[in-house]
Simulated scan of single mutants.
Amino acid sequence: MNDQDPPLPRLSRAQAALTRSVDVLDEHGQRETIQIPAERPLTVFVDKRELVTLMTLGAEPELLVLGYLRNQRLVDSMHDIDSVTVDWDVGAAAVKTRAGIEDFDRKTARRVVTTGCGQGTVFGSLMDELDTLVLPDPQAARISQRALVALLDAVRRQESTYKSAGSVHGCALFTLAGDDARLELFVEDVGRHNAIDTLAGWMWLRGLGGADKAFYTTGRLTSEMVIKSAQMGVPIIVSRSGITQMGHELATRLGLALFGRATNRHFLCYSGFERFDGDPSLARPPSVPPAGEGGSRAA
């Protein structure tokens, strides 16, 4: 930021409990108390105009709102935003811009309900902008198998709401450097689209590019996740889950490397082979089925 730029947005630091206790009855007739993830609506107002209601865990609501505005292309610059104020007493986020949003009605007129859990939404005009997205060259933005294994190990060791309560999605942002994968930020939410928007807000606030970054998500690789990653310039996505047809088609079209079914040292690379430096010596020996048994594996 140079001396002529307006200051960065003022952000509230709203806090909310991430889990709550409930009594359950198991299959043995035993009663116990467990933790479940909280879920709460956050209605976003831009210059006092209602925009959208997001169902969220509420871990980093201000970053979620910033990332949502960025990924929906409703604002062009971080400096267009004066403040983001979240009030959990009323379940609202008030966004104040410095000069309003040009063509607000046109930009928000078309919405597409996506396959993101919790029914994430994108505005229809985003689909028209896909061909304008340019990702870093594969020779400059890639991942080695050793870095991928390190990434998965870091996620495995991460303390999380999922481990204590389940029922949430997690996303993580990593910086790649040779065979190293450094965890920058780990975010959980009831919807993976919320979690990746929060990471996007974090990157945007710091002016970070995506050429040396990789996203990790526990959720499946849908078109929404591919688009959001491409918008932030991150060409590598890793998922514990699988992939959808449109997610695969868009990743191939945009040149992203997608890794799914990724746990421990196992993974499937679905696209972007040119961004991957494989080293099969790091893989565990394949299991051999008993004689006479076959089988297939679903991706």
Rank of each mutant, 00 (worst) to 15 (best):
N2T: 08
N2V: 02
D3H: 08
Q4Y: 04
P6I: 11
L8R: 15
R13S: 15
R13E: 15
A14H: 03
T19V: 14
R20Y: 13
D23M: 12
V24F: 11
L25C: 09
D26H: 06
H28G: 10
E32K: 11
T33I: 15
I34H: 03
I36K: 13
I36D: 03
P37D: 08
A38P: 02
A38M: 13
R40M: 10
R40S: 11
L42C: 03
T43V: 07
V44G: 04
V46M: 10
D47V: 04
K48E: 15
R49P: 03
E50T: 10
E50V: 10
T53A: 11
T53N: 08
L54C: 06
M55D: 08
T56R: 04
L57T: 05
E60Q: 13
L64R: 12
V65T: 08
V65S: 05
L66P: 01
Y68A: 08
L69D: 05
L69W: 06
N71I: 01
L74Q: 03
I81C: 06
I81H: 01
S83F: 07
S83C: 06
V84Q: 03
V84T: 04
T85Q: 09
D87C: 06
D87H: 12
W88F: 13
V90K: 03
G91A: 07
A92T: 10
A93R: 09
T97S: 07
G100Y: 08
E102T: 11
F104K: 00
K107L: 15
K107C: 01
V113R: 11
C117T: 12
Q119R: 14
G120P: 02
V122R: 05
V122C: 05
F123T: 04
L130F: 05
V134E: 13
L135F: 07
D137N: 04
P138R: 09
Q139A: 15
Q139M: 12
A140Q: 14
S144N: 06
Q145G: 15
R146M: 09
A147S: 09
A147C: 10
L152R: 12
R157N: 11
E159C: 08
E159I: 05
Y162M: 02
K163S: 14
S167L: 15
G170V: 05
G170P: 01
G170M: 08
L173C: 11
L173Y: 07
F174H: 10
T175F: 07
D180N: 15
A181L: 07
L183R: 10
F186Q: 01
D189W: 00
G191N: 02
I196C: 09
D197K: 04
D197C: 11
L199S: 04
A200E: 03
A200F: 00
W204T: 09
R206I: 08
R206L: 10
F215M: 07
F215G: 01
Y216I: 09
T217Y: 02
T218V: 09
T222H: 12
T222M: 09
I227V: 03
A230G: 08
Q231W: 13
M232T: 12
V234P: 00
I236E: 02
I237S: 11
R240Q: 14
I243S: 01
T244K: 04
T244C: 01
Q245L: 07
E249C: 07
T252G: 00
A257S: 15
A257I: 03
G260C: 14
S271I: 09
F276I: 15
P280I: 12
S281Y: 06
L282S: 13
P285W: 10
P285S: 13
P286C: 10
E293V: 14
S296P: 00
R297H: 14
A299S: 13
